[in-house]
Every structure is written in structure tokens, then in C-alpha cells.
Simulated assay, not measured.
Amino acid sequence: MPFIRRSRLAALALLGAACLSANAAPTPATVRAEIEALLGRITASGCQFERNRSWHSGDDARAHLLRKLKHIEGRPETVTSTEQFIEFAASKSSFSGRPYRVRCGNGDPVESRAWLHRELKALRAADTRAKQ
């Protein structure tokens, strides 16, 4: 009997996981493209990215934030804007709650939320100019 009970529990767990992944919500393509462009700015900036008191390259930051986005996309809710991505994934550590920071050159570090919002604004302004 215990084997049957464990089998049923395993089957229920698999069914639950399948239901959750069936309800997973991908990020809309236009939002995903804007997030990719924003993360490209981190990489191209030459700035460093701090998470949990450790400094990382722009490439490492990009990879980390894409992993966080993928994790969010595995849940039923979705990211519907780049601003939500910044708030949900790119502003603070899910582990420690500490704000992420960005340091460019010899400048003082700034919270990633402010840096990313500024870069997003510049990205959108450049996109608008390119469409005119």
C-alpha cells in the first residue's frame, strides 16, 4: 500500500507541475525585445553590477537578469512591461533583498532601479528618433 500511495503522490506532483507550466506566461515579444535591448546597454556600458555585495561585469549581470526573467516566466503571472521587469527582477536580490547597484568608471554606485530607468528612457528616446 505505501508504494501505491507514493506513486499517487508522485503522479499528483507531476500533474501539478504540468498544470503550472501550462499556465506559465511568456513575456510579450515587444517587451522581451526592449528588455534585451536594455540588458545590452548594461553589457555595452562597461559598468559593473553589484549583487549581494559582489561586483560583476555587465555580461554577468545580463546573464543573471535573464535567468531571473526566465524564472518569472515559469510562473503563472507575466511581465507586461519593461518597468515591471526592472521592479520584479532587476532592482534587488530575491535572496537577500539588498538593492542591486551599478558603478560606472570611478563614479559612485547608484541603485540599479534608477540606472535602468534612466537607460530605458534614453533607449525609448533613441527609438522614437529612429522612427521619425
Rank of each mutant, 00 (worst) to 15 (best):
K92Y: 10
G74Y: 00
Y100G: 07
N52K: 06
E34R: 03
K92M: 11
A33K: 00
C47I: 10
I42Y: 10
A90N: 10
L69I: 05
S91Q: 09
I35D: 02
E34D: 06
I35H: 02
L38H: 06
D60G: 06
E34T: 03
A61Q: 12
E36V: 06
R51W: 08
Q84T: 11
D60Y: 13
D59Y: 09
L69K: 01
A89N: 15
K92R: 15
E73D: 05
R51F: 04
R41P: 04
G97E: 07
F95W: 15
T80L: 10
H71D: 02
S81W: 14
H71W: 08
G40N: 07
R62C: 09
E50R: 02
A44F: 04
F49N: 09
S91K: 03
L69P: 03
T82R: 01
L66Q: 08
P76S: 11
K92Q: 12
F85V: 09
A37L: 03
K70M: 06
S45W: 09
A90T: 08
E50F: 04
T78R: 01
A33G: 00
L38S: 04
G46S: 13
K68P: 00
H64L: 15
A90C: 15
G40Q: 07
R67Y: 08
A44H: 02
S96K: 14
R62K: 13
E87N: 11
A33E: 07
I72D: 02
S94E: 07
F49P: 11
A90L: 14
E50W: 04
P76Y: 04
R51E: 03
E50I: 00
R62H: 10
R41Y: 14
G58N: 05
I35N: 01
E50A: 08
E34S: 08
A37F: 00
K68Q: 06
S93W: 15
A33I: 03
A90Q: 14
N52M: 07
I42F: 11
C47T: 06
Y100P: 04
R51A: 03
S54I: 09
T78K: 02
S96D: 13
F95T: 15
E34N: 03
S94C: 12
Q48I: 08
L38C: 04
F95I: 15
E83T: 07
T43L: 14
D60V: 11
H71N: 04
K70H: 12
G58T: 04
I42M: 13
A37R: 00
R53Q: 08
E83K: 01
A37V: 03
F49I: 09
T78P: 05
I72A: 05
K68G: 09
D59S: 13
S54F: 10
I86E: 12
G40A: 05
K92W: 08
E50Q: 07
A63S: 13
E77N: 05
L69F: 04
G40L: 12
F88Y: 15
E73K: 00
T78Q: 04
S54N: 12
A90R: 01
G46Q: 06
C47K: 10
I86M: 12
R53N: 09
G74E: 05
E50P: 00
F49T: 07
R67S: 09
R51N: 04
L66S: 05
A90H: 14
R75L: 11
K70C: 05
Q84Y: 13
C47Y: 11
C47L: 10
R75D: 05
I72R: 12
V79Q: 01
S96R: 08
R75I: 06
G40Y: 09
R67T: 06
